[in-house]
Design a protein around this nucleic acid. Structure first.
Length: 107
DNA sequence: CGTTTGACTGGCC
DNA sequence: TGGCCAGCCAAAC
């Protein structure tokens, strides 16, 4: 198993995130058995051609990670379009929108 | 080829 | 409750 093979695997898991739900970098990283930094890196190197729902990937704080761009606002906007509600602290309730790891592993 | 840098996370104070 | 440190691994320089 080459670590570089994790990228397509990470993409597959991210695409398994249900509509209107979100997952954390740590969850995907755990399912792949790698570091969460990789997940963020895979998304950072991802392109629109990958058709990745990167908007459904947030950090363990239930918030959107900063990337030094408008993407932060865009991600929040897209999530709201899917029905995801943000708390007063700009955080997402995983109890309501959190995707179960089993749901990602299952085809 | 070695150093630095991230779309991260958990633990500590 | 919020800021800081170390571990993680691939990409950039």
């Amino acid at each position: 198993m080459k670590t570089t093979d994790l990228r397509p695997k990470a993409y597959a898991l991210i695409r398994r995130i249900p509509y209107g739900k979100v997952a954390t970098y740590g969850q995907i990283a755990y399912l792949l058995g790698c570091s969460p930094r990789l997940i963020g890196h895979f998304l950072a190197t991802a392109t629109e051609n990958d058709e990745l729902p990167w908007q459904r990937v947030v950090n363990t704080h239930g918030k959107i990670s900063e990337r030094g761009g408008e993407g932060e606002v865009l991600q929040r906007f897209l999530l709201q379009q899917e029905g995801v509600i943000f708390n007063a602290r700009d955080k997402i309730d995983f109890n309501t929108y959190g995707s179960e790891p089993t749901s990602l592993k299952a085809g």
